[in-house]
Design a protein around this nucleic acid. Sequence first.
RNA 1: GCCGGGAUGGCGGAAUAGGCAUACGCGGACGCCUCAAAAGCGUCUGUCCUUACGGACAUGCGGGUUCGAGUCCCGCUCCCGGCACCA
Length: 821
Amino acid sequence: MAPTATPQEFDPHAIDAYWTEVWDKEQSWVVDNKADAANSVYVLEMLPYTSGEPHVGHLKNYAVGDAIAHFMRRQGKRVLHPMGYDAFGLPAENHAIRTGKHPRVSTNESIASFREQFKQWGISIDWTREISTHEPSYYRWTQWIFLQLYKAGLAYRKRSAVNWCPKDATVLANEQVVDGRCERCGTLVESKNLEQWFLKITNYADRLLQDLAGLDWPPHVKTMQHNWIGRSEGAGVTFRCAEVDFDIRVFTTRPDTLFGVTFLAISPEHPELDRLIAGIPAEPAIREYANQARRESHAERVGDRAKTGIVTGRHAVHPLSGAKVPIVVADYVLMEYGTGAVMGVPAHDERDYEAAQALGFEIRQVIQSAVGSADELPFVAKGVTTSSGEFDGLESAEATRRIVAKLAELGAGEASTSYRLRDWLVSRQRYWGCPIPMVYCESCGLVPVPEDQLPVLLPDVEDYAPKGKSPLAAATDWVKTRCPQCGGRANRETDTMDTFVDSSWYYIRYCDPNNTQAPWSEQAVTTWMPVDQYIGGIEHAILHLLYSRFVCKALSDLGCLSVQEPFQRLFTQGMITRDGAKMSKSKGNVVSPRTIIDTYGVDTARCYVLFMGPPEVGADWSDEGVEGVYRFLRRLWRVAIDVAGSQNDVIGAVLDQAREDDLRREMHATIKKVTEDMSGGNFAFNTAIAALMKLNNSCIRAAQDGITRATLSEAVQTIASLLLPFAPHVACEAYHQLTGKRVWMQPWPVADEAWLHLDTVELALQINAKNRGKLVVASDAPDDAVKQAALDSDVVRAAQDGSTIRKVIVVPGRLVNVVVK
RNA sequence: GCCGGGAUGGCGGAAUAGGCAUACGCGGACGCCUCAAAAGCGUCUGUCCUUACGGACAUGCGGGUUCGAGUCCCGCUCCCGGCACCA
């Protein structure tokens, strides 16, 4: 909308187009890296995965982030607010296979669409910092980071049981298996014994857990990471099996139950199993049992089924009691957790109880709820020890301490901590990803590609369909290379990296995205990092957010980065549903941002997704609700145009000083309300917008009843000014119509306390806490005067008749309650 | 089972240092404008009783504390999310 025109009809599309062009031309949101860390704020929304088109979830994500970015800028901050694309990975590749387009082509098309729509939405992005994870200029540094981790011993190859998705024909990280199924395609995951690349995230388990305390994150996200890391404290205990010279190590969280051990159970995958069972009568049966267990998926093994096991006939010696304890192979014992062997305490563990019943082991109670009480078994709570020799009669905590000390003294155990977290499996047998910069030399073995030879470019291949080994293996010219060490014949690593490696460091690259000499400069990173406000979906609570924290800490330890945590404050937005269901093409309930914007303009769409409810909770889409927001914006625009076009000093019917004051007072109250709703980590956009609607209604009413042009204009300007974070195009237009100025360059309005103070206040007059009328008093009236005024009121006099006044409670500014009996 | 979050009109939701429950929006009713409709504008809209004035009852359920409870405490029910043969 040209600022000189005087339009008669609200035309949001013209307004959108006009201001989009202004921002684009003037580079309104570009910031440099000057060293001004104290005044610099980094606002970041999770980068979009570019497959297909943006949906309303994206709209909400960026509407939330943009509101914060605008608000911060108006507070005088330099705001880094960049954008990029998570472009490698399985979904993009699968989409490419389905459509018959090369993933590079279809991904670039998708990126173009995202970029175009983000610009249309008017998100205040510094477009000079745009990145994409599939560009060599970016993944060169992903490879560089991999090499740093490798040199530090944090990237390694290991053969082990891994999750395999038969449909996507690749291995998966533990975090990408949900309820035993592939997170992407829902296929039941199989277990395979393969050699793969891992990142040693377990080295950081404790720090990842402890440093959660210093983060300003939603508690449930912290809890999820806490649970995922799964720290348990206990003890390692050694049971010696002299028959085959084998020290069986177990981990327990309950050393106080040690005297209740009546068997030892070891996992069918235990590496010492062969040695343990060699030559015993049960050997063939156990081998069959172990094979069977290996064939089954993890989901099947942990299903709701009876405990099984095969008794070996071998025994171990209890380290404290000296008792002979039978050893059993049982598939309920997981190799992946603890030591792959557990001590069986049937009296105090439900699983052990079940196993003992099935296999006929003794059930020996060593903990009681209180001395002498008859507890039902299994009794799993803590209590007092019994039948535990010298440790009898101790509380569980004390018994634990003493038993662990005794074990340590005998060299048969020690306090120990175990984690549920596994190392991060990062290699993928797929085409569309970042190549792992390693070569296999016939004489030198595994050799990293020298940094000055990066990037290892992803070659173009004809056939990129998944085959169970990386499609890159087919690019023989690319695979065959020379060893960087000896110059001899060597082959390149053909697996690619998990997409989550790409996105584990992108927020650092934004600080210095065009640096060709290094992944980032120290200056850029100290100016911006850490991200002050991160915004994204809850689905990344564990995956992306845990991986990023790990990579950040590792880089920091390697001296590459000066921060320990990437995201200081996190906000997770709730999902928008339609008719109570997640939007999906198959259900046909998808709301397209394009359709809404074509009908109502950008600002209605942005404002509506913020007005639906608190942004952290989910909300159901309503077409009627959208109309309501559109009406608000149109009414605002109308009153702004009317005021701007009016030559009169008074607008409306009859001037009234009280009305002037009321509107001004409401204006200042609204400034206060909106500011509070957005300050200090508040994301109460829904109530902020409600307050603006209310003030707008008051303006329209005042324009009918009679008001000076000056007062009305100031109030409408204020609405426009406060609305910038939510509806930037209409806000800029309305403000410009009234003032000729650019609202984003104006400081955020400040409420004048003098206008928030009232001379008189209306109190609720209550009798026995029930509303019985109103009482108008001077706002600075002392409590005694208020009390007297209440007693003098007709309502109280009437109530007093025949009863006595017991008490009068005055709540200044609120109410007065007369208690009668 | 463990951990976290929640339940308020016909609907989305406001309101927690305990102080006038239902802001704002949607939907609905009636009216104005119109030849008419749409749009727009205005008034009303928690439930029940009452012609009215007015009153009673209402924040998932049952108790409690308090002059006063959506808000605090105790005991439940249901819903959502995470983890779960993790020893």
